[in-house]
Structures are given as structure tokens and as C-alpha cells.
């Protein structure tokens, strides 16, 4: 979830203005909406418009990690917040722990704005009911040096090519590494691997380790290592790394290899114990305005779910080639595997 670091750093939110809206005294008789979200996902102008339209007060709590969202939600069984924004792979656990309620799309008329690719995202549908509404998206693409590659590499297998030994960096993220490797190996469901598939992924990742210069720790770390030179390829943490690299003088391109790439979607969801479900639905609806989607793409460089033109403008045209993150069969097991990969000395 490291892209949050990037988001919180680069979005030009006036922190003061946000804070002041967070501490606005509740209007005596008015309605109140309590939002738990990432910085950048509840911009002041939308909040003001929403407050005027609904005659409510909005209080926003910002979060820095998925951990924190879980901790805050479980602490009160969801009673402290009305709406939250969180990424697709967390919904299995959130619904398992009964922290969310289904979204009634009848109360979200602007869901008709959703682009086709985001109308039925399986990761957020449980028992046939949608538990969230997609809002912003991105991918884990392959970033390559255009000095080395005249044309974009077409397969993830380039990360295994001994020609680029020591010139490859991979993000230190168990699930992303495993899912991408599973995609390369052609596994149908990269989120539910069999024991045998686990072994294959492990062998493949161990093989890759000999090529890897570093498992980088975060958005900036990856950019900094790549920009310092000697690196040709990186399994990225998200689209914004490419413009960041270019601004630091690196000639890079970004591609979704033929096997596809991981996609993520941040969605708005309604807490199981929302105080005012009508108001919560109204917020979700408001976030699906095309203007909001346009703003998200222009401001953050991520894809939006309502305005295809805005996505195209920033080059995010490949939502149909992404495999959107789902909760994996056993996160602990994936971490275990990844830790084993990192702990195993490179076989020279």
C-alpha cells in the first residue's frame, strides 16, 4: 500500500483547510457524516459542495495505512465512521468481520456513470451484493529504461533474463510479487494458488532473485534507485513512478506486459454501523460525479472510474488488461513465502 505515501506527499491538499473541516463543530440539529479515508480522496471543494447540498456536516479522519483502517474500524465495530475508502483486496476481511453493509445502488443514481470495467468488480461483491463502489484505480506496471529498450518489453519474463542481472529492481511486496509471477506462469486465479502453484511461484521468484539488485522499500526508494543509474527494469509500485523518474532525468517507459498486470481499485464503502445510511449513500453518489473523477485523474495521475476521456488523457487506457486485486487465499502464507525468498542467499 505504499502508493499512499506518494499520494499524501504529492497531492497538493491544503492540510490546514482539511484539518479545519475535520474539527468543525457539529451543527446542533444537522446531520453529520464521518469519513475515514486517505488524503486526497475528500478534497475540500467536494466536501463543501456536499455539505451545502445535503445540509450536513462532514468530519474527516485521515489514515496512513490499511492497518490503521482495520484498527479503527474493528475498535468500534464500525460505529465511529459512516463511510471509508479502501482498496479491493481488503473487502474479504472487512465483510468477514462484518464491518461493512452492502451498498444500495438504487440510492446511488450516479453509479450509472461508472465505466463498464468497474460495473461488476468481483472483489467487492459478496453473496451477490456489492459492498463498495469503485472510485480510483491504478496498476503495477513494468517500467523500463528507453535507453536500453527501443521497444517496450512485451513479457514479464524479461525480469528473469540473465542479460539484465543486477539491473532489475522489484518492490518489496509479497502479494504483488507473487501475483505478478503467477500471471507470468499463466495461472488462472492468481489469488487462489494451489500448493503446487505455490512451489512453482517460489522456485520462479528464487530464480529471479539472482537478477535483482534490490527489493525496494517504497515509492520514492524505487525512483531513487532507478534514477541513480545502473537499472534497466523495475516492477513498479504504480504509474506515478514514471513521471517522477522522468523529472529526475531518467528516460523510462511504462508498459502492461502481455500477461497482464495487477490492478487496484480504491472504493467507497459504507460502515456496518453507519449512523445515517441515507447520507452515507449520498456521499458515495456524490463521489461518482464525473467532475470528481476528472479531478482525481488530473490531480493524482491515477485512473478514475467515471470519465474515460480523463483516463485517456493521462494514458490509463488499459483497465481491461488488469487483474484487479482480490483477497488472496492466505495472506500469511504469501508473506511467509516472500520472507523465505528474501531470506534465501542468492545462488550464484
Amino acid at each position: 500500500m505504499k502508493r499512499r505515501e506518494f499520494l499524501s506527499l504529492t497531492t497538493t491538499m491544503a492540510a490546514g483547510a482539511l484539518a479545519s473541516s475535520a474539527f468543525k463543530p457539529a451543527k446542533a440539529a444537522g446531520k453529520e457524516l464521518r469519513i475515514l479515508t486517505w488524503e486526497g480522496y475528500a478534497d475540500d471543494q467536494w466536501v463543501k459542495a456536499f455539505e451545502q447540498k445535503t445540509g450536513s456536516t462532514v468530519s474527516i479522519s485521515y489514515t496512513g495505512s490499511v492497518d490503521e483502517i482495520f484498527a479503527k474500524m474493528t475498535a468500534s465495530g464500525g460505529a465511529d465512521f459512516d463511510v471509508i475508502a479502501i482498496e479491493t483486496s481488503s473487502y474479504k476481511r472487512l465483510t468477514q468481520e462484518k464491518l461493512l453493509q452492502p451498498v444500495d445502488l438504487a440510492k446511488v443514481p450516479q453509479s450509472s456513470n461508472l465505466l463498464p470495467a468497474f460495473r461488476s468488480v468481483s472483489a467487492i461483491i459478496f453473496d451477490g451484493k456489492p459492498y463498495a463502489v469503485p472510485f480510483a484505480w491504478g496498476s503495477i506496471p513494468l517500467i523500463y529504461s528507453t535507453d536500453t529498450f527501443k521497444t517496450a518489453p512485451d513479457s514479464w519474463s524479461i525480469l528473469w533474463d540473465p542479460k539484465y542481472k543486477g539491473r532489475i529492481i522489484v518492490m518489496d511486496d509479497a502479494n504483488n510479487a507473487i501475483v505478478t509471477t503467477a500471471l507470468l506462469l499463466g495461472f488462472k486465479d492468481p489469488f487462489n494458488l494451489s500448493a503446487d502453484q505455490f512451489l512453482q511461484v517460489k522456485a520462479k521468484l528464487l530464480e529471479q532473485k539472482a537478477n535483482v539488485a534490490s527489493y525496494y522499500a517504497g515509492f520514492d526508494d524505487g525512483v531513487s534507485i532507478f534514477a541513480q543509474g545502473g537499472i534497466d527494469l523495475m516492477m513498479s509500485m504504480g504509474e506515478p513512478q514514471a513521471p517522477m523518474l522522468r523529472s529526475r532525468g531518467a528516460n523510462v517507459g511504462l508498459t502492461i506486459p502481455k500477461e497482464g498486470a495487477i490492478g487496484w481499485i480504491d472504493c467507497w464503502a459504507i460502515s456496518a454501523k453507519a449512523r445515517d445510511t441515507e447520507l452515507a449513500h449520498a456521499w458515495v453518489d456524490a463521489m461518482l460525479e464525473k467532475a470528481v473523477g476528472t479531478y482525481i485523474s488530473e490531480k493524482t495521475g491515477y485512473g478514475n472510474t467515471t470519465n474515460g476521456d480523463a483516463n485517456e488523457k493521462i494514458g490509463l487506457t488499459y483497465s481491461d488488461r488488469l487483474v484487479f486485486l482480490q483477497a488472496p487465499e492466505d495472506f500469511g502464507r504469501r508473506i511467509e513465502l516472500w520472507n523465505e525468498i528474501k531470506a534465501t542467499p542468492v545462488q550464484q
Binding site: 495505512s65 492497518d67 482495520f70 511486496d173 495472506f331 508473506i335 516472500w338 520472507n339
Partner: peptide, 8 residues
């Protein structure tokens, strides 16, 4: 990784 990723 156990706290931040695996939630174990």
C-alpha cells in the same frame, strides 16, 4: 511483515 502485511 507480520504486522503490516500478513495481519498475523
Amino acid at each position: 511483515s507480520q504486522f503490516g502485511m500478513a495481519f498475523n
